[in-house]
Amino acid sequence: TYYTVKSGDTANKIAAQYGVSVANLRSWNGISGDLIFVGQKLIVKKG
């Protein structure tokens, strides 16, 4: 599943929404920190 980042989103918020850990969200998308951008497409695997 892909999720498009919206204004006000955070890695924590997206992870919680899908029931996954922030560490997994980072791993699936090659993100090292919490910096995400509006319009960015993230791979999300439901927990």
Rank of each mutant, 00 (worst) to 15 (best):
G8H: 06
V44I: 13
L35T: 13
V5P: 02
D9S: 00
R26I: 14
K13D: 11
A23N: 09
S32Q: 14
S7V: 15
A16P: 01
I36V: 10
A16E: 13
L42R: 00
K6G: 07
K13N: 10
K41P: 05
Q40I: 06
G47Y: 11
L42E: 01
V5C: 06
L25W: 00
V20T: 08
T1I: 14
G19E: 08
A23Q: 12
G33F: 09
G30K: 10
A16F: 10
K45S: 14
S7N: 12
R26C: 15
L35Q: 14
D9H: 01
K6N: 07
T10A: 04
S27K: 14
Q40H: 05
I43V: 10
S27H: 12
G39P: 00
I36E: 03
A23D: 14
A15H: 02
G19F: 07
S7C: 15
K46P: 15
L25N: 00
W28V: 03
I14A: 00
T4E: 11
S21N: 07
G8K: 05
V38L: 08
D34F: 08
S27L: 14
Y2P: 04
T10N: 07
A15D: 01
G33P: 07
N29H: 01
L35M: 13
I43M: 10
S32N: 13
D34I: 07
N24E: 15
V20H: 01
D34Y: 07
D9V: 02
A16R: 11
S27P: 00
T10R: 03
G19Q: 09
G8R: 03
K45L: 12
V38M: 07
N29G: 02
Q40M: 11
L25T: 01
A15M: 03
A11E: 09
S21V: 04
W28S: 03
Q40T: 07
K45G: 13
I31E: 05
Y2M: 09
L25Y: 00
I36Q: 02
G33E: 10
W28I: 05
A15V: 02
I14K: 00
S21Y: 03
Q17L: 14
Y2C: 12
T4S: 07
L42C: 02
A11K: 03
G47S: 12
L25H: 00
A11W: 15
I31D: 05
S7D: 14
I36P: 05
N12L: 14
K41T: 12
Y18W: 14
W28T: 03
I14D: 00
L42D: 00
S21K: 06
N12F: 13
T1E: 14
Y18F: 15
T4G: 03
V5A: 07
S32Y: 11
G30D: 12
S32H: 12
W28G: 02
L25A: 00
G39I: 03
T1V: 14
K41S: 09
K6L: 09
F37D: 07
R26Q: 11
A11Y: 15
L35K: 13
N24L: 13
Y2S: 07
N29E: 02
S27V: 11
K46V: 14
A11Q: 11
T1D: 12
G8Q: 05
D9E: 03
V5F: 04
V44G: 01
I14M: 01
R26V: 13
W28P: 01
S21P: 08
L25F: 04
G47R: 10
K6V: 12
G30W: 06
